[in-house]
Structures are given as structure tokens and as C-alpha cells.
């Protein structure tokens, strides 16, 4: 690995993944900035105001991409969990952990933006609408996963436990969606005047939503990569410390 710049010599001695990502991250950051500015412009200047809901509806262009990212991140946690249990490579655990943490940020944003939108439209910050409830359960599942990581930090098997919980929770999500939907259709709340149905009749609305979705997805990729690279370095450091302790012990034999 002599070709690598000296600053990343240690991390490169076995796997180049962490520094490669660290180099990629700034570019993703730049892309995020550009795309975010573009979507801000589109949301506030380009897209026409929705007829029924008025200006508030514009939060929708941030709300929906966040929701997509939150669900996708959770899928990533589960996929990383499957690979970790299958292959046992620490890289998958780092990926799952990073995805859960980044996903939690977006899941929280979904709840906040949804709440901001619901107050003027539905007249309440919070309703037990099926989609809000599902997202809230998702948030609780993320919370459980992160609490496990925090509380089991000193257990050597924490990665395995995280993988198991990530898989089980993600596969639970479809059942949550179905049950919550049935729950709310059977007892329709008075507040819910229209079941979602955001008519995106104007093509500019669709374009804005698409750009915002790409922007948030790239932002997620950026945050994920930063955290992932950091966790990779942490794992690498643990490995090196272990090797060092081993070498010191061997040196003590002589």
C-alpha cells in the first residue's frame, strides 16, 4: 500500500475502505449542498402553491423524501444484519449501525415535519392517522435498536444482537403497516378529512418532489458514509489495539 498518501497509512494496511470513503464524503457533501439549494429553490420559487392546503403543503416536498429515506435506511439495517450473521465480517455491523443512526435522524424529521403540517391542516399537532402511527412505530423500533447498541456496548456479542434485532424489526414493519391501516379505517377519526391523496396534478410538483427526493437520498448517503467511515476507523483501531496488546505480550516472553 505504498502508493497511499502517508496520512492514511495505518488504515490502509489491511483495507482501503475507510479512507476511500473519507475521500468520497466531501464530494457527496458538495452534491448534497447543491441539490439541497436546488430543492429549496424549487420548493419556494418554482413549484405552484397547492390549491386546497395553501403554502403549508410545501413542507410535503421535505416530508415525503425523509419518509422514504427513513424506511430505506431501516431496510439497509436489516440487509446489513443478514450479511453480518452470514459472513461475520465487522464491516456489515458498522454499516448497519451507521444506517440505523442516520435513519433515526430522518425518521425524527418525518415526525416533526408531519406535525408542522398537521397543525394547520388537521387542526392538531398529532393524530393517530395510519401513516403517522406507522412512522412513529418505526421510530420506536429504531429507538429500541439504538438503545440496545448503547446498553450492550460492553457485550462482545452486541453486533450479533444488533443484527438479529434489525432483521426482526424490519420484517415486522409490513405487519405494522397492515395492522395500523386496518385499525384506522375501522375507526376513522373525525380530524382526518382527506386520506392523504395529495393530488400532484401539476408536473412541476412531481419534478420538485423528485429533486427533493434525490437531494435527501444523497444527503442520507453522505451522512451514512461519514458515520460508516468513522465506525470503520473505530473497528480498525480496536483491531490494531488488539494486535498491539498481542505483540506486547509476545515481546514480554523474550
Amino acid at each position: 500500500m505504498a502508493a497511499e498518501p502517508s496520512s492514511s497509512n495505518i488504515a490502509d494496511s489491511t483495507g482501503a475502505s475507510a479512507p476511500a470513503m473519507a475521500r468520497l464524503a466531501p464530494w457527496l457533501g458538495v452534491a448534497t449542498l447543491a441539490l439541497m439549494l436546488a430543492s429549496l429553490f424549487m420548493v419556494f420559487e418554482y413549484v405552484p402553491t397547492e390549491a386546497q392546503e395553501g403554502i403549508v403543503q410545501r413542507i410535503f416536498y421535505f416530508h415525503v423524501p425523509c419518509a422514504w429515506v427513513a424506511f430505506a435506511a431501516f431496510g439497509l439495517v436489516a440487509i446489513a444484519g443478514v450479511f453480518y450473521l452470514w459472513l461475520g465480517d465487522q464491516i456489515w455491523d458498522d454499516l448497519g449501525y451507521a444506517a440505523a443512526e442516520s435513519g433515526m435522524v430522518f425518521c425524527t424529521l418525518v415526525l416533526i415535519t408531519g406535525s408542522l403540517w398537521a397543525k394547520p391542516i388537521w387542526g392538531a399537532w398529532w393524530t393517530w392517522d395510519s401513516r403517522i402511527t406507522t412512522t412513529f412505530i418505526l421510530w420506536l423500533l429504531y429507538g429500541g435498536y439504538l438503545m440496545l447498541r448503547a446498553m450492550a456496548d460492553d457485550t462482545p456479542e452486541v453486533a450479533r444482537f444488533g443484527a438479529v434485532v434489525g432483521i426482526v424489526a424490519a420484517l415486522d414493519v409490513p405487519v405494522v403497516i397492515v395492522s395500523v391501516r386496518l385499525w384506522r379505517t375501522i375507526h376513522p377519526a373525525v380530524l382526518v378529512t382527506r386520506q392523504g391523496g395529495h393530488g400532484l396534478e401539476d408536473p412541476r410538483m412531481i419534478a420538485t418532489l423528485l429533486v427533493a427526493t434525490v437531494a435527501f437520498t444523497v444527503m442520507f448517503a453522505w451522512l451514512l458514509m461519514l458515520r460508516f467511515a468513522q465506525l470503520r476507523l473505530r473497528s480498525r483501531m480496536k483491531e490494531l489495539r488488539r494486535a498491539l496488546a498481542l505483540a506486547e505480550a509476545s515481546a514480554g516472553d523474550l
Binding site: 462482545p156 488488539r242 496488546a245 498481542l246 505480550a249 509476545s250
Partner: peptide, 13 residues
Amino acid sequence: LSKSFGETPVLRD
């Protein structure tokens, strides 16, 4: 065979 608990080596080679 080597085994470490955390960073502490327990078995070496």
C-alpha cells in the same frame, strides 16, 4: 489459535 477479550489477549498462537 489466538483469542482476545476486547483488547486483552487471552490465548496466543
